[in-house]
Simulated scan of single mutants.
Amino acid sequence: MTQALTALIADDEPLLRHHLKSVLGDVWPELDVVASESDGAAALAKIHALQPDVVFLDIRMPGIDGIAVARALKEMEMVPVIVFITAYDEYAVQAFEAHAFDYLLKPLHDKRLIQTCERLKNQVRLCHAGQGQSTAGAIASIERLMQKMQSPMNPWLRWIRASKGDEISLVSVDDVIYLRAEDKYVSVYTCEGEYIIRMPLKELIKQLDPDMFWQIHRATIVRVEAIERVKRDFTGKMFVYLAGGHGKLAVSRNAQGLFKQM
């Protein structure tokens, strides 16, 4: 008989802990949640005592935070698979993407949790078969994550939380071609299609690197690297033509000075 997998949840929000445990029971009934803790010190003690296969770990907790808990796991013979839980933070997400960790964003979305559970099943299976990340490798990844989290933060937006249909996605600003203000929202255009955000364009432009994004019209922001050429039509109106056949965008009279040195 296969030994049941175990998990521990550590988060200072009681409702989130309850919701996460409930959804895990629905989507991964074989996973036994052996403990649910509200602070880092209690979580660390239970992890050492119970040796769970998976730990759902909140980044920000009173006392010892989630990063410190993860770092302390170097003392364990077998490091559990870690899933960080965090409120939306562009820099944190960028760090998680670069390493062998999964993460969940608050508020939790069931579809994302289901995807995480599928990844976890495979990852834990590999670890039990001796093919997963070694303890030394896991510790090294935790140390690299710590260095990334402690380094000076990039002041410019790196990720945009946007919706596409009923789904919420994290769109890297590196994938954005242009943004256009519509009636009550802003459309974000990428090679993968169109996304929607509710932030006003005038607030969004303040968070974007001015060397990477130019506001070429009252309702339009374009990624500079996406511009293939600039041309005037027979009436004298200026347009930017986007690389990859993504069309053209009008340039307002006030913004034409941006292209004097192009």
Rank of each mutant, 00 (worst) to 15 (best):
G165V: 07
G165L: 15
D166K: 15
D166G: 09
D166V: 04
E167Q: 08
S169H: 15
L170N: 13
D174R: 12
D174L: 12
D175K: 14
I177Y: 06
Y178V: 02
Y178P: 00
Y178E: 02
R180A: 08
E182Y: 05
E182W: 06
V186T: 07
S187Q: 05
V188F: 01
T190K: 02
C191V: 08
Y195E: 02
I196A: 04
I197Y: 01
R198K: 15
R198L: 14
R198E: 14
P200H: 14
P200R: 15
K202D: 09
K202S: 13
K202E: 05
E203R: 14
L204P: 03
I205A: 07
I205T: 06
I205G: 02
Q207M: 05
Q207T: 05
L208I: 07
L208P: 00
D209A: 12
D211K: 08
M212I: 08
F213W: 04
W214E: 05
Q215Y: 03
Q215R: 10
Q215M: 10
I216V: 14
I216G: 00
H217P: 08
R218G: 15
A219E: 12
A219Q: 12
I221R: 03
V222K: 00
E225M: 09
A226M: 09
I227H: 01
R229K: 14
R229Q: 00
V230I: 09
D233T: 04
F234G: 03
T235M: 15
T235W: 15
K237R: 08
F239P: 01
V240I: 09
Y241R: 00
A243W: 00
A243E: 04
G244F: 06
G245M: 11
G245F: 07
G247H: 13
K248G: 07
K248Y: 07
A250D: 05
